[in-house]
Amino acid sequence: MIVADRKSLEEILSMVETDKKILVVGCKGCVTVCNVGGAKEVEVLASALKIARKKAENELEIDTHVLERQCDNEYVSQLGDTVGDYDAVVSMACGVGPQFLSEMYREQVFYPAVNTTFFGGATQHGVWEERCAGCGTCGIHLFGGICPIARCAKSLLHGPCGGSSNGACEVNKDTECIWDTIVKKKMEQGKVDDLLAVKGFKDWRSARDGGPRRSIREELVEGNI
């Protein structure tokens, strides 16, 4: 899923500084799963904003709403009747949400309340870790099912650099050296030879480097499925 962190209350307050009436919109997709922008977090943020503004003797009227998904125009259109009633709208979805909202409602201002961080999952309650860099050409099977593009600080494809120490990355002792993990897994399996050949030069066009990406599935576009 897409993982995000909520922005600080101060930053969000500064965004809506001149507004008197706002809507806070959550999303039931990834940000609900990573506990940052679902129904519960929408109410928490709305309360916190109200209290802060009341304390500053500049009260803020806030309504809340949670869409099924903010990355889907079918759901985004559900705000059509009310979106114009507000000075601004704060979106708690990933970076995709406020863009879909902005594209549909061109006159309204949408503020992002979260920082979208990575594609990953929860490794324990309250801890999420990056697993994918969305490079567009998946080759995790070449590395024991582990992605060094996303998980090595240097995206190395041929083993751990000279800074790998006791299983930790040179960047941060709390960060796993993913190449240590890949190598140990292959050694345990007696398949270390899998890692030794020099790999082809990666074609980064499939990643963000090739420009904004688009995925077209003709059969769906044509309405056959």
């Binding site: 041929h158 083993g159 751990p160 650099c161 000279g162 800074g163 790998s164 120490s165 006791n166 299983g167 050296c177 240590d180 190598v183 140990k184 050694m187 270390v192 890692l195 030794l196 050949a197 020099v198």
Partner: peptide
């Protein structure tokens, strides 16, 4: 080549790859 980085057992293999 850094023979002192980890995992140690892999270092000689990485050296061999660099030579290849």
């Amino acid at each position: 080549c850094n023979p002192f980085a980890d995992p140690y057992e892999y270092r000689v293999h990485r050296l061999a790859s660099k030579i290849d």
